[in-house]
Computed example of a mutant assay.
Amino acid sequence: MSRLSQIAPEQANPQQAELFTAVKSKLGRVPNLLRALANSTAALRGYLEFSGALSNGSGLDPKQREIVALTVAQANGCEYCLAAHSTIGKMVGLSPEAIEAARRADGFDESSRAVARFAGEVVKSRGRVEDEQLDAFRAAGFNDDAVTEVVAHVALNVFTNYFNNLAETDVDFPDAAPLATEESEAAACSTACGCTA
């Protein structure tokens, strides 16, 4: 159960109602994250404006934006964001394997791998990414527009991860499948092929 109020649309004040109407027109509903963020109209408005601006950016495509979100959510242990972005990731065309790879800060091809690894390094280093890692991201075909947008998406997702972790927001998306651990993967391999991995 959420530790913060999740404002019901029918109980919203005029400012909250205006923002909820905009959200509902795009998503068809108001997710619990946004209902909880509505405790501060300023926070909700800021989140919507920042995420809206980033969704119109040219540095990352929709799949790459979801890869960043999944990498960051896994790093921060945010169950709400893992569920939400696993669902959204499928909607923009990420396969279950691509979603799992992103959660492991990896990818299914050179481009997605570069995005996930760079986002993971931004989180891990708190932005103090080494020249070698920045050069590797650029070598994968990304320019400074993409570098800036990865950092912006990391920041946006850290905000929602921390908020959801604190609020314990009720998850209103299908739960994200747990990642297989190396130990369970080795056991599955041993059972399937008889090896001693």
Rank of each mutant, 00 (worst) to 15 (best):
E149F: 06
Q64S: 09
A98V: 03
D106C: 08
P178R: 15
G127T: 13
V158N: 13
A177C: 00
G127Q: 10
E168Y: 05
N165K: 10
P62M: 06
R104K: 09
G77I: 07
L179H: 12
D170Q: 04
R103K: 15
A101P: 05
A152C: 12
T87K: 06
D175F: 01
F142E: 10
A139F: 10
L94V: 00
F142C: 02
Q133Y: 09
G127D: 08
F173R: 03
F118N: 12
D175L: 13
L82W: 04
V68S: 02
E168K: 11
E121N: 09
A84S: 15
F142K: 08
F163W: 04
S125E: 11
A114E: 00
D135F: 14
D109L: 10
V147C: 11
G57P: 02
A83H: 00
C78P: 00
E168I: 15
R126Y: 04
P96C: 00
Y80S: 02
V72G: 06
Y162S: 08
N164G: 13
F108L: 09
V154L: 09
S111H: 01
N157T: 14
V158G: 06
V154W: 10
S55C: 11
R138V: 10
N143F: 06
G77H: 07
F159H: 10
F137V: 11
H85I: 08
D106H: 15
A101V: 01
A84R: 04
F142V: 11
V154F: 14
E79Q: 13
G120D: 02
G59Q: 03
N165Q: 04
V150C: 12
V122K: 14
L156P: 03
N157D: 00
F159A: 01
Y162A: 12
T148M: 14
V151H: 06
A101K: 00
V72D: 01
S95H: 02
P178W: 02
G77Y: 07
F173L: 14
A136F: 09
R138N: 02
I67L: 14
Q74L: 06
N164L: 14
A101T: 04
N76C: 08
A177M: 05
N143C: 08
G141I: 02
N157R: 13
V154Y: 04
G120R: 03
V151R: 04
A176I: 00
N165W: 05
G57A: 11
A102N: 11
I88S: 03
T160N: 07
D109P: 12
V115C: 10
S111D: 13
S111K: 13
A155H: 09
F137T: 11
R128E: 08
D144N: 14
R113A: 04
S58G: 15
N76I: 14
D170C: 06
R113T: 15
E121R: 15
M91T: 14
R103H: 10
A114Q: 07
V158S: 09
T169R: 10
A146M: 00
A73W: 00
I88K: 02
N164V: 01
F163N: 00
A114R: 04
T169V: 10
F108P: 01
P174S: 05
P62F: 05
Q133S: 11
E79W: 09
A146K: 05
F118Y: 14
F118Q: 07
F118R: 14
E168M: 12
A152S: 14
G127C: 09
V154C: 14
